[in-house]
Computed example of a mutant assay.
Amino acid sequence: MSSSAASFAAALQAARTAVGAQDYPHGALYLVATPIGNLGDVTLRALHVLQLADRVACEDTRHTQQLLRAYSIDRPGDRMLALHQHNEAQAAQQVVAWLQAGERVAYASDAGTPAVSDPGARLVAAVQGAGLRVVPLPGASSVTTVLSAAGSVEEGGFVFVGFLPAKAGERETAVQALAGEPRAVVLLEAPHRIEALAKALALLGARRVTVGRELTKQFEQVATLACAELPGWLAADPQRTRGEFALVLHGEPQAAGSDDGERVLRLLLPELPMKTAVKLAAEITGGSRNALYELALRLKHAE
């Protein structure tokens, strides 16, 4: 047993103790979130299900075998199935057949939560289409990790876009469309395309972007800066273009005209509590709730 695997022996026992008594139905697909870099981010349920499952389908069998061995989980090669973007439709039918035979099948992508940006969505659709159960196991995700570090998700929520088009013209068109998006936007990018993405995002000028590089890994880096500064930030250090990237384009709520906001608030405030009036005014005008709240306070004080 390697030193890495030995260090997780206690975690395996903890998994059996903590979640082993729960119900794990046969004939179900288990979507297993795996770490995006730090092995310690695996969950107890993930460890238990990876041991319990009759079969493990995964994006890359070699990668997942290394991961399992790191956790001291022994999985014979004939009990694993490669299921990736190039064979997902065909491999999904094999998984459905195993489930119909009453087997438990776990699916793991190379890192993070399956079926979000990684393969798995077509597998889930095929399993559900066959009337079989899908059991999601929450865990590591680059999307929620970078959002939590950006501090930009307010009342409007966020939009997950993932990878923009690889072709320059299509990518710039996509960025121009994002310029009008008032909510935070999550983007993903590979190291060989990060400079091209930075160049496209620079067109958004002063709009803020949080860059998460090598999240959860030894050389993790998180920085927030103006989009116009992103190409220069990358160029300042060759290390900054290495690794996987998750980015948050900060939201820019569209400001309502002061006349519109004041007019709507003057109609609503006499009839409704202030918070409710502000919420409705924001929905009606598309304005910033914080700005409308400050305006409501001024109107109240002026009475």
Rank of each mutant, 00 (worst) to 15 (best):
G40N: 09
V153G: 09
P253D: 09
A121C: 10
V264S: 00
T241E: 09
T61D: 01
G286F: 01
E214H: 06
L44N: 01
S2P: 15
P136I: 02
D259N: 07
V143G: 02
A166H: 14
L68N: 02
G257T: 11
D259H: 13
L164K: 02
Q51M: 13
T145Y: 10
I194R: 02
G40C: 13
V175A: 02
R104P: 00
Q94N: 08
G251L: 03
F163E: 09
A168Y: 10
L247A: 12
V278E: 06
G232H: 11
G162Q: 10
A97Q: 15
R240D: 05
D259M: 08
A28I: 04
H250A: 15
V185S: 03
V127D: 00
Y293N: 06
V95H: 01
F8W: 13
E170Q: 15
G102Q: 07
L280Y: 10
E244I: 10
L29Q: 04
E283S: 15
R171K: 15
L83H: 11
R298D: 14
I194K: 04
L67N: 02
L50S: 02
A140E: 00
A6N: 12
L292T: 03
L132K: 07
L44V: 11
K275T: 11
L299C: 04
T17M: 14
G120L: 09
V42R: 02
L215M: 14
A10W: 10
T43Q: 03
A206L: 08
A281Y: 06
P138E: 08
L234W: 13
L50E: 00
K199V: 12
V175C: 06
A14P: 00
L164E: 08
S3C: 06
L295M: 15
S3W: 14
T224E: 14
A177G: 08
A281D: 08
S4Y: 13
H84V: 03
T113K: 04
L215P: 04
A106E: 04
L81W: 06
Q90H: 12
G261Q: 06
S3P: 04
D237M: 05
A150K: 03
D74M: 15
L230K: 01
L249V: 12
V19L: 14
L267A: 15
A111Y: 00
A15Y: 01
R298W: 02
E303D: 14
G157R: 10
V143E: 01
A5R: 11
M1T: 13
H63D: 06
F160E: 01
V159T: 15
E170Y: 12
A5V: 10
R133A: 12
H48A: 00
V95E: 00
G286K: 02
Q94C: 03
P114W: 04
L188T: 11
V96S: 08
H192P: 12
A92C: 03
Q13L: 13
A111C: 11
D259Q: 10
L280P: 04
R55D: 05
T210P: 12
E181C: 14
T113D: 03
A46M: 07
V248D: 07
A235E: 15
A149Y: 11
A115T: 07
I36L: 04
R69I: 06
W233K: 08
R263A: 12
A5Q: 13
N290C: 05
A140F: 06
R62V: 04
E59P: 00
L50R: 01
F8T: 05
D259R: 13
T113C: 05
Y71D: 00
A228M: 13
N87P: 07
H48D: 03
H84S: 05
G287I: 01
V42Y: 00
N38F: 02
A140N: 00
L299P: 08
